[in-house]
């Protein structure tokens, strides 16, 4: 128990990070129970407090940073762009699968990213997997290796432009600066 308090004391932002993970976990609790009865909510407040006090160190890197209104606006914009790309990629897959000749020329290309945060890299890799014709195979340091259905011989910058184009700038605005 002493170790826990020492860890609390060393970190400057500890109470803000604790509150942030409490808010996220409580939102998940409300979705899981999906009832507004007073005993359910009270149990949730206490349980989430206990769980958050053990896990805030692993779950958060910055405090209430991500609940800033401007960042929330960019997160919502990101979700919209992502859904648009997801629907587009599904019709692309449908066109390829139902085409009698399978019009593809696959290969693995690579491109470097400008992102530094690990969470941002994970989200970019997930988004790339769900956009038209691309599947992320590996990330080494800041180099993404992408399996692409229309691979051509091209430079890294061109590949970055045509694969990560819509997402990378938004992620920089959300996670950095």
């Amino acid at each position: 128990m002493d170790g826990l308090f020492q860890r609390f004391a060393k970190d400057k932002e500890y109470h803000v990070r604790f509150v942030f993970s409490w808010i996220i976990l409580f939102a998940i609790w409300m979705a899981l129970t999906s009832s507004l009865q007073i005993q359910e909510v009270l149990t949730g407040v206490i349980t989430v407090g206990i769980v958050a006090s053990f896990t805030w160190k692993n779950f958060t890197t910055k405090g209430l940073h991500y609940l800033h209104p401007q960042r929330i606006f960019y997160i919502l914009l990101y979700i919209l762009v992502f859904l648009k790309e997801l629907v587009k990629s599904n019709f692309h897959v449908a066109w390829i699968v139902l085409h009698p000749k399978l019009p593809i020329s696959p290969g693995i290309v690579r491109f470097p990213t400008r992102l530094k945060s690990e969470t941002a890299k994970l989200i970019l890799a997930n988004s790339i997997t769900l956009t038209p014709g691309t599947l992320s195979v590996d990330i080494k340091d800041n180099m993404y290796y992408i399996h692409w259905l229309e691979a051509k011989n091209m430079t890294d910058e061109e590949a970055a432009q045509s694969i990560a184009g819509p997402f990378e700038n938004l992620l920089i605005k959300i996670f950095e600066d």
Binding site: S105, I108, V137, D138, H147, K152
Partner: peptide, 27 residues
């Protein structure tokens, strides 16, 4: 997407390479 990413990397490391008409496999 995470599970398919893990599976793609594992397949490439265990020696299954993609078909490619122009032989593009930078990985």
């Amino acid at each position: 997407p995470i599970s398919s990413h893990a599976l793609a990397r594992a397949a490439h490391r265990s020696g299954i390479f993609p078909l490619s008409r122009e032989n593009i496999d930078l990985y």
